[in-house]
Design a protein around this nucleic acid. Structure first.
Length: 425
RNA sequence: GCGGUCGUGGCGAAGUGGCUAACGCAUCGGAUUGUGGCUCCGACAUUCGAGGGUUCAAUUCCCUUCGAUCGCCCCA
């Protein structure tokens, strides 16, 4: 095969898209209840937006961006995450002028040039929310709660919330320095990776699976929080507790984007190789100012939908069928088939999902197809029925069948289908 | 970016330096002239990811390349 999809991309076939529709409708519904409204921003932005927003020294900006020049030599980049674009749109469209906190959500593809593996793609999809305009810890908790409830309503089991505060940039700098001092004496005993983390991002050493023993007694970020950060963190915890959202304080939690302040959190789930993080987020006071607006505090989250799908599969969580066939019309013989074409169209006009055979199969084959496609009813139209001005309707689940007058068929099917429980409609 | 494993029909999966490339599922046809799910019978890969090389002969050996997957790194 000479033409293949680019590495790290996926084709979503109809049975996959069915799952996507389901997830998306659940996401939209939860946003409706939490009063978040959808925003759609461009798939590509000026490269500078991400450099400034996500941070020059992050892995994302340093080596994972899909950056290209357009025909006018502008440097553009396919968005690697959702927040920067939303914040840019917030600033550019002066949404700060609105009466209330802006509560926004988005869903769509993101792009990062990385080695692909299970649950990690170069084009992947996120559902995210952003609340801009309030520094109230209650809204941090609301954001965390929305994500938690979303996973819960999707049927996921054993989702954990890991929570941390990374304080202000000043707290963090002091903390990094303290960590370097702590690890300095054992620096040559740390694993190769951690030695490189030492300069770049000493907070990550705490995550290391190899050097656990050297982390004993390491200072915690929480000791370096200033009074205000500490209060904020406490109130987030209180709000979560009040809502009954379980969480686990993890002082080692560090996120991969530079813009986080105070609250940082991740959702974790088991069962997909080495990947356990399925979503995360945090507060980003200062980002709006950095993008060029009047400074406004914000908080948000991003959930990886491929990873959600992976966990759903691992936990065998099914998706209700999205487009079942209500009536399959079997036409036998030339005249009946011509009539079947018209009947199917009439049914469809009446709002019924109807299908027929297009492969010239015999009766048996058509019924088999109807069975496989899980049609609720089959309508059989042959020479005999045609001569009598009738059509036979068979209920597939029971095998029961009866004759209807051809003239009243569509009307009667409409009534029958309407009287059934909504899940079959 | 580094290291390991892998790539055979729609799907799953055996296999061998040479004779028609097992088998299972699915599909199609028949047994059952117009009635699905069960059973039985039959059909279904000039071809083994792509390109090149070695050879009388390659799906099998070698090289390159593309892709998948696992671990590291990092993350969603």
């Amino acid at each position: 095969m000479s033409l293949q999809k680019p590495r790290g991309t996926q084709d979503f076939l109809p049975q996959d898209v069915e799952k996507w529709h389901y997830i998306e409708s659940k996401a939209r519904d939860i946003c409706r209840r939490f009063q978040y409204n959808e925003i759609r921003t461009p798939i590509f932005e000026h490269t500078e937006l991400f450099q400034r927003g996500v941070g020059e020294t992050t892995d994302i900006v340093e080596k994972e961006m899909y950056t290209f020049l357009d025909k006018s030599e502008r440097s553009l980049t396919l968005r690697p995450e959702g927040t920067a674009g939303v914040v840019r749109a917030y600033v550019e469209n002066k949404l700060h002028g609105a009466v209330d906190v802006q509560k926004l959500y988005y869903m769509g593809p993101m792009f990062r040039y990385e080695r692909s593996m299970a649950g990690r793609y170069r084009q992947f999809h996120q559902f995210g929310i952003e609340a801009i305009g309030s520094a109230d810890p209650a809204i941090d908790a609301e954001v965390i709660a929305l994500g938690y409830l979303f996973y819960e309503e999707m049927g996921l089991r054993n989702v954990r919330v890991e929570l941390n505060s990374v304080g202000t940039p000043q707290c963090r700098e002091q903390y990094r320095e303290a960590l370097r001092q702590f690890f300095q004496p054992n620096l040559d005993k740390l694993c190769k990776d951690c030695q490189s983390r030492f300069e770049r991002n000493p907070m990550r050493i705490l995550d290391c699976k190899v050097d656990g023993e050297y982390c004993q007694g390491a200072p915690s970020i929480l000791e370096f929080l200033d009074e205000e950060s500490e209060q904020h963190f406490l109130k987030v915890q209180q709000a979560l507790t009040a809502m009954g959202i379980p969480f686990n304080i993890n002082p080692g939690l560090v996120r991969g984007l530079d813009y986080y302040t105070h609250t940082a959190f991740e959702y974790m789930a088991d069962g997909i190789g080495s990947i356990t993080t399925i979503g995360g987020g945090g507060r980003y006071n200062g980002l709006v100012g950095q993008i060029g607006g009047q400074d406004k505090p914000g908080v948000g989250l991003g959930l990886g939908l491929e990873r959600l799908l992976l966990i759903m599969e691992a936990q065998q969580i099914g998706v209700p069928p999205q487009n079942p066939i209500e009536i399959y019309v079997v036409g036998l013989g030339e005249e009946a088939e011509a009539r079947a074409t018209a009947l199917v169209f009439e049914l469809r006009k009446a709002g019924i999902s109807a299908e027929r055979d297009y492969l010239q199969r015999k009766m048996k084959g058509q019924l088999k197809a109807a069975d496989r496609l899980e049609a609720a009813y089959v309508a059989i139209l042959g020479e005999d029925e045609l001569a009598r001005g009738e059509i036979v309707v068979k209920t597939m689940a029971t095998g029961h069948q009866e004759s209807f007058a051809l003239e009243q068929f569509v009307q009667q099917m409409f009534v029958i289908l309407k009287s059934r429980s909504p899940q079959h409609l």
